[in-house]
Design a protein around this nucleic acid. Sequence first.
DNA 1: CTGAAAGCGCTTACAG
DNA 2: CTGAAAGCGCTTACAG
Lengths: 356, 356
Amino acid sequence: MGQSGDTEGKGRAPRRAHVGTTIADVAQAAGLSPMTVSRVVNGGQGVASDTRARVMTAIDALGYVPNLAARSLAGGRQDRFALLYDNPSAAWLSELLVGCLAQATDLNALLMVERCEAEIAPSDIVRRLTCHRIDGVILPPPLCDDPALLTALNDASMPMVQVATGHPSALASSVAIDDEAAAYQLTGHLIALGHRRIGHVSGNANQTASPLRRVGFERALAEAGIALDPELVVAGDFSWRSGFTAAEALLSRTDAPTAIFAGNDDMAAGVIAAAHRLGRDVPRDLSVSGFDDSAIATSVWPELTTIRQPLGAMARRAIALLSQARTGQADTWKRRHECYAFELVERGSVGPRGNA
Amino acid sequence: MGQSGDTEGKGRAPRRAHVGTTIADVAQAAGLSPMTVSRVVNGGQGVASDTRARVMTAIDALGYVPNLAARSLAGGRQDRFALLYDNPSAAWLSELLVGCLAQATDLNALLMVERCEAEIAPSDIVRRLTCHRIDGVILPPPLCDDPALLTALNDASMPMVQVATGHPSALASSVAIDDEAAAYQLTGHLIALGHRRIGHVSGNANQTASPLRRVGFERALAEAGIALDPELVVAGDFSWRSGFTAAEALLSRTDAPTAIFAGNDDMAAGVIAAAHRLGRDVPRDLSVSGFDDSAIATSVWPELTTIRQPLGAMARRAIALLSQARTGQADTWKRRHECYAFELVERGSVGPRGNA
DNA sequence: CTGAAAGCGCTTACAG
DNA sequence: CTGAAAGCGCTTACAG
């Protein structure tokens, strides 16, 4: 054997052509060890500032970007989260999706999105998640309000975050707004504009936010000394159609309401459509308010006065909470329940009561 | 040094507790090498059938699931794709997103979703993608129809797939339907129902599908011997509002159309809303058709007669094409242009012409 | 504050 | 048809 390592023995082809800059390249360029580069890249605690500067210069010069697969493998973790959904409003879902995806990308986590119809047994859902090695689950309505599902998931030690639930569970973390307070404020707004006969189209009973919004509505009425007419509260299911149907019934009454608070924007759009069909002007003859500030709120005419909830931020936070849960002990992850600020957004669909 | 390897020298703590079953566990359980297990897991070509069976048994018994990070690292690739979007209909976007995400998950690829407003310079977009080591891009309208963006991306050797474009580019692959033919068939359907004065609300001019749909509309008219009244063609922009406004104008004419073909479902919903507001019954006084069969088509009342395009399948295919592009040589990936079948979906918004 | 060594769990490139 | 070896690009657990 000579001294030259290049020619020693029966060499085999190198694994593959080198593509992309690695941490070793940066280390060499900076005259440091890969370990030090790794430290700088991962926060840089306990690194001399001039060392850090040298590393940063090399990173910029070489255009280094860490290989996430290697990082996951070496770090011993790659989170895989699942977003389960069942037939929410498309606009609502896309906002949720984009937010979750953005955070998942930042955290180098995989996000799997699965439709979960109500007919599927919780045990089957758990099985599927386990199969895919899912480390945590995002649960939007109505799934977040399904006790059987929550229990099954908890029994499988699956961290979960309820998004926009009206009833935070002890088994999960949650991000939500105060639906009751928001509905209260919105209804108060209608009352302040002179409305006394106010209708409400409630949401689907399978979501806990629905009764909360109705309760906020009723509390505002009660505090203003307005007797609740139960005939003016109609059960909807969050669909455009149910808002349309409910409004047709409400507006056909001799003592029709001068304002209608719909439990979400889709139903509010349906209410406006029904009003127009019956020849009523919005907001002159009828004020209509929605809830959520989803895309449809600014699509229809007149645009909807509604409650804005920061869904994108809530979605990002939900993924972050899941990631934190993974960091702690299984079985003992810390549940957190976070409440976000909502905002009353005034647009054209609500106006002062006419002289009736 | 004794024979027992367990006690030799100054041991250091094992890297970390072993979590999850690895390929080595399966190999041991099956009495085979990891290599063989790997072969079975990855398609199983050239493995004796009883060997394969032994491996499968061990996999099932142990509940083995491959570590994707390790696979990516060893395999030398982890694809990172980006879905760029700019303000499409929320329903349309969520269907696209779910499809892309499902395929990305199956392929162990990362999907990054980024909003790209029209004001952003193509060079900045390219820079951002490069920064994130993106290997391919999904381009829905209107981005897929922006020549400057396509050129900039191509100059950066970025594989791209246009989704639902009306003008497949030589620089990209594409998945689409034949918009002209679909519009032609839809218009023919209206004509067959007795309509002669048919209006059209065209889509945003920044999307190539818009003029194609109008051309299909015009061809159907011409072939039926109906003279085109240019006054009956109004420019919209795919928004609900533009459909609403256009229909208000169209229906206020003394020679108002008996049917309106809107360039997408959002605009069709706006057209129906305007019709109702003006006291017209749909479809008795006015037939309305949409295009896309997005969620809004079955939300509004009456439900929309429209053209269904298989967006979920197209989205999955788009990701698959990107993945294939990565397999080939950079700079020479094979562009493919695939056309999907559409379907005319008949619902309640279209009916025979009344006796006018 | 910095670094040499081991190892994460897989696949590629061989050899037999 | 099957397997031993090397290596993917990082991070952890140490040592100094």
